[in-house]
Design a protein around this nucleic acid. Structure first.
Lengths: 250, 250
DNA sequence: CGGGCGATTGACATTCATCAAGTCAAGTGG
DNA sequence: CCACTTGACTTGATGAATGTCAATCGCCCG
């Protein structure tokens, strides 16, 4: 038990079925023929509310379902034998998570809400049955897992070949992209995680993250107060993220 | 072309179709009902020979197929904009690789044979069709991707929270396990990669790897000459790999 | 025999983690 | 409403782990 109560109340800003959900276009039904959305509705449970820090599932728990973020944000963390936490993923509205458990039938990491969030739960056995009948859904799932694998590989490359600054800048640009994909501002947004979590995700000490952000601010590349971030010079950031880039004209 | 000929004479144990392949039990058909193996035979192309350093597929190439190692060994590498190489995976007989391309339809990394290897190619479109008809195969593929994702996450944790020594030891133990799973000796085996590649995979400089291995040898935990490795004190290695482990009885 | 890659070893440099203090904001309880 | 606590963040000083550079060796392969 951790002190987060368990309100499970659905909210009328976000609809309870895929056919009328404003997120559907960027969510699981993405790319599916419209008629098949109705079938998905049978799958998805009413979205449930999770408060900040509340667990959605726990490491080592048996795997029955995967989840989709409707609103808010979620992190996945792995806790090793020494009790150290390692942040593995950040999920924003429309993102599916929880498939880490398919491998051996139990979750390999925990998922926690970073703020008040609405989460759809999808029973995996049901999902599998639908997959067999809907080739596009089958493909979608594989693509999704492949994307996550590629993201992990990107992080691996960053961790072993990049400086703290490069990692931080790439993180900022990645967030920017993801917000843009969601039709939100890509130049001004709020970090969903605490800086401690963000540093952990990047394999850095909080202090290092703090210093790097300070430096970026002093150079006039970003503005940052608290978790509110604004990108002032995107080109310069991109140049840092990809050091091989040379400005032929500018 | 590079001269690489390493006759791995094993051959007649490896056959051209799944039903008679000695690897089948630990390969893709794993867990499928025997009758369905024949259907897989329709999928898999005759295994092809690749020599050391030969590419199996290239980064950015369009994705049509995935592959299975029948004999030998394969590495996948990502080459960044600066031309630096990063080793992402090591694949041994029975392992499937190449699904990195499902995401956006093109491979995100290259695959290279580490020694003379036999590789089965499987057309992905065909595989997908069979998946729809064979629920177990569908599940298997998802599990496989999940496993790879979990492996990547393990590496991420190691890279950001572990010392060079811990990483190296875990790598050795992981190899040991994988060889054991293949019914080979888990205490004495040959590193499939050069030490340069292994160091790269572990996010270390070759020099560091060399020094760490030297230290492990001096402490009598392993014997190593060239790529031939022998584990002398597995318990001690495990204690290093998982520092929280305390010997209650021994 | 010669060339080159892979590996080892030593000396040195540097990034980043760690430790320590202190600020700030937001609760929380009396 | 004020003292107290707590968590998130910042800033500075220091040190350690590991990368980088350089020299050398052995060995495989042409």
């Amino acid at each position: 038990m951790d002190g987060a109560q368990t309100y499970q109340v659905s909210v009328n800003t976000v609809s309870e079925n895929c056919t009328s959900c404003s997120l559907a276009a960027g969510c699981l039904p993405k790319g599916l023929p419209w008629q098949q959305w109705r079938q998905l509705d049978a799958l998805a449970r009413h979205p449930a509310v999770f408060v900040r820090r509340q667990r959605i599932y726990s490491q080592n728990a048996p795997f029955y379902s995967c989840y989709i973020v409707k609103s808010g944000a979620v992190k996945t963390v792995y806790i090793n034998a020494q009790g150290q936490e390692r942040v593995l993923g950040l999920y924003l509205p429309g993102d599916l998570f929880g498939l880490d458990g398919v491998g051996d039938g139990s979750h390999t990491c925990s998922a926690q809400a970073l703020e008040r969030s609405l989460i759809c739960r999808i029973n995996f056995a049901d999902l599998e049955q639908h997959m067999a009948r809907m080739p596009k859904l089958q493909r979608l799932l594989l693509q999704l897992m492949s994307d996550q694998l590629n993201a992990a590989h990107g992080l691996i490359c960053s961790l072993s070949q990049s400086t703290a600054e490069e990692r931080v800048v790439r993180f900022i640009l990645e967030l920017s992209d993801r917000y843009r994909q969601r039709k939100l501002s890509g130049t001004e947004f709020r970090l969903a995680m605490t800086k401690t979590d963000a540093a952990n995700y990047l394999g850095l000490a909080v202090e290092t993250l703090s210093r790097v952000l300070g430096r970026l601010r002093n150079r006039g590349l970003i503005r940052i107060q608290g978790r509110q971030l604004q990108i002032l010079n995107e080109a310069a950031l991109k140049a840092i993220a990809d050091p091989s880039h040379i400005f032929l004209d500018s």
